[in-house]
Design a binder for these strands. Structure first.
Lengths: 229, 229
DNA sequence: ACCTGAACACCGTTCAAGT
DNA sequence: ACCTGAACACCGTTCAAGT
């Protein structure tokens, strides 16, 4: 989960006085010497959710963070790298959500797999704009991988570990672990992307519990093929 | 499959003479009184494949079609509707590709399902930019549905029909036909989108036969869950 | 060191004007 | 009827200049 570390925003006494005196009430906060990088990612994530990836301009992100349109270039090479950083935060939320869901079912790889898949689908349906930024081809793969660092393999690694433990326990089919993991990912990813794109009808009309039930049934159907016969 | 109907490009004798005399060799063809709408979709599809959806500007599409940047507004309300028309052509190619693959396996619903899924994944891997335009959240869902018309339900309808015939034959599991169809779609869509997005490594290094084998195995794993036990 | 403001080439969209 | 060219507000990016 991305969090803004406000403890890093330190102002000198004189800066503080100026900031208070010229305060235009909750706008144009001075990020000088603060963590502008984090503030830009935060503002960008908010704008992304409100207006979608198409309406996400570098200039508006900068304005929302209270700096000039050229300031972001001190922290990101170009717009693509800012988008990649926003997407990377999304990947981390996805990884964390799956791990948390799986942790509710110790010693039950099948339940872990389904719970992680449900979490994946629910997050995709809840934040379609982030999902599209992450997987919609809006960022060059190279930049995305650069911003991801270790987090990319992270989520898939968790999935592989679940499959592996299930194979050891004799619950899942024998065969290439990586391929079983890829099949599981494909089911959750496919359903999540279809929901995010509105291909299954407007998402507003589905209640959270209806969504969870749908995800659960579809994933269970797909995961059925991974079980040992 | 989208095809350009060249028979519709009719020029008067004088126009033809001017066109030939002032020919800058394969550029700036006069689409006056021709099928500019189809020419724009054609040029847009080509530019999309060459440069991706991010680099697809209305002005460049117009230039590639040999008209001014304002001419497209005679045929499309805005850029979004041109993109929707390009995406609609992609949906139709996908539907046709799946139908053709399924037709190779008469009276074998399981083989039809796997063949259709393979075709879906192969097309997604071959034209990732089109896939991202179709499913990447770049077009407002309303505009996309408007441009699709009858084609949207078309591909999914074919899938439902395959599942239905398999259920009647006692091959597939009983239960909600729509949900089995959605699970099948999710598997193919998920794998296709992951390949298109480069999440499974650079696509260039996979040969067509390796790709087909991967798609076949992953889809068979997922479809296994739909079989009657 | 960090940010600003002007400048540049591009973009989507509109509209009066041409044929 | 159909297309053009100028105009507008916006965009990403660069860079000399300010503190």
């Amino acid at each position: 989960m991305f969090t803004l570390d406000t403890s890093k925003w330190t102002l000198s006494t004189s800066e503080r006085r100026i900031a208070i005196e010229s305060m235009p009430r909750a706008s144009a906060k001075p990020y000088h010497h603060g963590d502008l990088r984090a503030a830009l990612i935060d503002a960008g994530t908010k704008l992304l959710r409100e207006r979608g990836a198409a309406g996400l301009s570098l200039r508006e992100v900068a304005k929302a963070a209270g700096v000039s349109h050229a300031a972001p270039y001190r922290h990101f090479e170009d717009k693509g790298q800012l988008l990649a950083a926003i997407a990377a935060a999304g990947f981390e939320r996805l990884r964390a959500g799956m791990a948390k869901a799986a942790a509710d079912h110790p010693d039950d790889p099948r339940a872990q797999l389904i719970a992680a898949g449900e979490a994946y689908v629910e997050l995709a349906a809840k934040h379609p704009e982030t999902m599209h930024l992450m997987f919609g081809g809006m960022i060059e793969p190279g930049k995305l991988r650069g911003a991801l660092g270790e987090k990319g393999p992270g989520a898939f690694g968790d999935l592989v570990a679940i499959i592996e433990s299930g194979q050891r326990a004799g619950i899942f089919a024998r065969g290439e672990t990586i391929e079983l993991a890829l099949a599981s990912w494909s089911i959750a990813h496919g359903l999540g992307m279809l929901l995010a794109g509105g291909q299954l009808g407007p998402g507003k009309k589905r209640t959270p519990s209806e969504l969870k039930a749908l995800a659960s049934r579809v994933i269970a159907l797909g995961v059925g093929g991974l079980m040992r016969e």
